[in-house]
């Protein structure tokens, strides 16, 4: 078949093009939040003293970090789904959450005596954190990968890693409402490991599934 023949066939295929990316992202974001919420409320639920906790800076700080991560990674992933995306421009946004963590850790080290640093870092619930952040983030990650597949990312693995970060950000935001460990030392360690696990999974998943 030569190229002009191919063009004839393509031009004759007048069935509607795929749904617009904006529509699909909107659906994916709503679906991700609902599924993550469903898993969270069915398996964990918020901690019992959440009202009192909401008045402490450390508790609120967790949401600043996870919220910033979820928002920035989601925005970056949306851009990455366009074939001509220039991903370098997104780097500043992605730095916000890590910088917040660093500032939080620094302030915590100043605020606390050094002999309880280790205890705060280890916390009470690190295993639960490492289990539930990936578990809550799994369905959002799957939805995001499907959406990337509908798009045309020219860097599939990188776009999948961003999907993992976004899913991790969403999952960590829910999990933070359950987790009794509020120290930035705990967040910087265990949340990071859990989110990076999802990020790796996203990159691998995208390599396999996001082909076009």
């Amino acid at each position: 078949m030569d190229t002009n023949d191919l063009i004839k066939a393509l031009a004759a295929d007048t069935r509607r093009p795929g749904l617009s990316m904006n529509t699909v992202w909107l659906g994916a974001a709503s679906g991700a939040l609902m599924l993550a919420g469903l898993v969270f409320f069915m398996m964990l639920g918020p901690r019992p003293d959440i009202a009192a906790a909401a008045e402490t800076v450390r508790f609120l700080f967790k949401f600043a970090v996870t919220g910033a991560l979820a928002a920035a990674a989601f925005a970056a992933m949306r851009v990455a789904a366009w074939p001509e995306a220039e991903l370098r421009k997104l780097l500043p946004y992605l730095c916000v959450a890590p910088l917040l963590v660093l500032v939080g850790v620094a302030l915590e080290l100043v605020a606390l005596p050094s002999d309880i640093w280790a205890a705060k870092l280890i916390g009470t619930n690190s295993l639960l954190c490492l289990t539930f952040i990936p578990l809550i983030g799994l369905a959002p990650l799957a939805l995001f990968l499907l959406t990337l597949r509908h798009g045309a990312p020219s860097r599939p693995a990188l776009s999948g890693a961003l999907a993992g970060l976004a899913a991790g950000g969403i999952a960590a935001t829910f999990y933070a409402a359950h987790c009794p460990d509020d120290s930035p030392l705990f967040v910087a360690t265990w949340y990071t490991i859990a989110v990076l696990g999802l990020t790796l999974l996203g990159a691998i998943g995208a390599r396999l599934a996001v082909r076009w």
Binding site: T3, I7, G18, G151, W212
Partner: peptide, 15 residues
């Protein structure tokens, strides 16, 4: 490359 790219342009024209 031309043919493969045209096919991709076609199936991804919503992007």
């Amino acid at each position: 490359i031309v043919q493969e790219a045209l096919l991709a342009v076609h199936v991804k024209r919503h992007t």
